[in-house]
Amino acid sequence: ETGKELVLALYDYQEKSPREVTMKKGDILTLLNSTNKDWWKVEVNDRQGFVPAAYVKKL
């Protein structure tokens, strides 16, 4: 879809709370919100949640 910003997972991340999502290094995720410098909201496999901003980079 146009207008979607994507990020690349630089590291594996295992969710530690229900508000977070698990990702694997190399995953491409849809970026939903990056206003917080530490935690970015992403969508992966129809799930939305937060990942550490340092673990992903914008494509």
Rank of each mutant, 00 (worst) to 15 (best):
E1G: 14
E1Q: 14
E1K: 09
E1F: 05
E1D: 14
E1T: 14
T2Q: 14
T2L: 13
T2K: 12
T2Y: 12
G3F: 14
G3K: 14
G3A: 14
G3N: 12
G3P: 13
G3W: 13
G3Q: 15
K4D: 07
K4S: 10
K4N: 09
K4E: 09
K4I: 13
K4L: 13
E5D: 11
E5I: 15
E5V: 15
L6C: 11
L6S: 07
L6Q: 10
L6E: 07
L6H: 09
V7L: 12
V7D: 00
V7Q: 01
V7C: 13
V7H: 04
V7A: 11
V7Y: 09
L8K: 07
L8A: 05
A9I: 02
A9W: 02
A9F: 01
A9Q: 01
L10Y: 03
L10I: 10
L10D: 02
L10R: 05
L10P: 00
Y11V: 11
Y11S: 08
Y11W: 10
Y11N: 09
D12T: 06
D12Q: 03
D12H: 06
D12V: 02
D12M: 03
Y13D: 00
Y13R: 02
Q14V: 14
Q14H: 14
Q14G: 07
Q14S: 12
Q14L: 13
E15C: 13
E15W: 06
E15D: 05
E15Y: 05
E15S: 15
E15K: 14
K16N: 10
S17I: 04
S17M: 08
S17Q: 08
P18C: 10
P18L: 09
P18G: 09
P18F: 08
P18S: 12
P18M: 10
P18V: 10
R19N: 14
R19A: 11
R19C: 15
R19T: 11
E20F: 07
E20M: 06
E20G: 13
E20I: 04
E20W: 04
V21S: 02
V21R: 02
V21Y: 04
V21M: 13
V21N: 04
V21C: 09
T22M: 04
T22W: 05
T22D: 04
T22R: 05
T22K: 04
T22C: 06
T22L: 03
M23S: 00
M23G: 00
M23C: 06
M23D: 00
K24P: 00
K24F: 12
K24L: 08
K25Y: 05
K25C: 08
K25Q: 09
K25M: 08
K25W: 04
G26L: 02
G26I: 01
G26T: 02
G26E: 02
G26D: 05
G26W: 07
G26N: 06
D27W: 13
D27M: 15
D27H: 05
D27I: 04
I28W: 05
I28H: 04
I28G: 01
L29P: 01
L29C: 10
L29Y: 10
L29D: 00
L29S: 02
L29T: 01
T30A: 10
T30S: 09
L31F: 03
L31Y: 02
L31V: 06
L31C: 07
L32M: 07
L32P: 00
L32H: 06
L32A: 03
L32D: 01
N33T: 08
N33R: 07
N33G: 06
N33K: 07
N33Q: 10
S34N: 08
S34W: 09
S34T: 09
S34P: 06
S34Y: 08
S34R: 08
T35D: 15
T35G: 11
T35K: 12
N36V: 05
N36E: 10
N36P: 05
K37F: 08
K37H: 12
K37L: 10
K37I: 10
K37Q: 11
D38T: 14
D38I: 15
D38S: 11
W39N: 02
W39E: 03
W39H: 03
W39A: 02
W39G: 00
W39P: 00
W40S: 02
W40D: 00
W40N: 01
W40F: 07
W40L: 04
W40V: 06
K41N: 06
K41T: 08
K41C: 13
K41I: 14
K41M: 15
V42R: 00
V42C: 05
V42S: 00
V42T: 01
V42K: 00
V42Y: 01
V42H: 00
E43A: 11
E43F: 07
E43D: 06
V44F: 15
V44T: 15
V44G: 14
N45K: 14
N45W: 10
N45T: 10
N45P: 12
D46R: 09
D46K: 11
D46V: 06
D46A: 11
D46T: 10
D46Y: 09
R47A: 06
R47Y: 05
R47L: 07
R47Q: 07
R47I: 07
Q48Y: 07
Q48V: 14
Q48T: 11
G49M: 05
G49S: 02
G49F: 08
G49P: 00
F50A: 02
F50Q: 03
F50L: 09
F50W: 15
F50P: 00
F50M: 08
V51S: 01
V51G: 00
V51H: 00
V51L: 02
V51C: 03
V51F: 01
V51A: 03
P52L: 04
P52H: 02
P52D: 02
P52V: 02
A53F: 02
A53S: 14
A53Y: 02
A53I: 03
A53T: 06
A53Q: 05
A54W: 09
A54G: 10
A54N: 13
A54C: 14
A54V: 09
A54F: 08
Y55D: 03
Y55I: 06
Y55F: 12
Y55C: 10
V56Y: 02
V56P: 00
V56I: 08
V56H: 00
V56G: 01
V56D: 00
K57C: 15
K57I: 15
K57P: 01
K57H: 09
K57G: 08
K57A: 12
K58L: 14
K58S: 08
K58I: 13
K58D: 04
K58M: 11
L59F: 09
L59Q: 05
L59T: 06
L59C: 13
L59Y: 09
L59W: 09
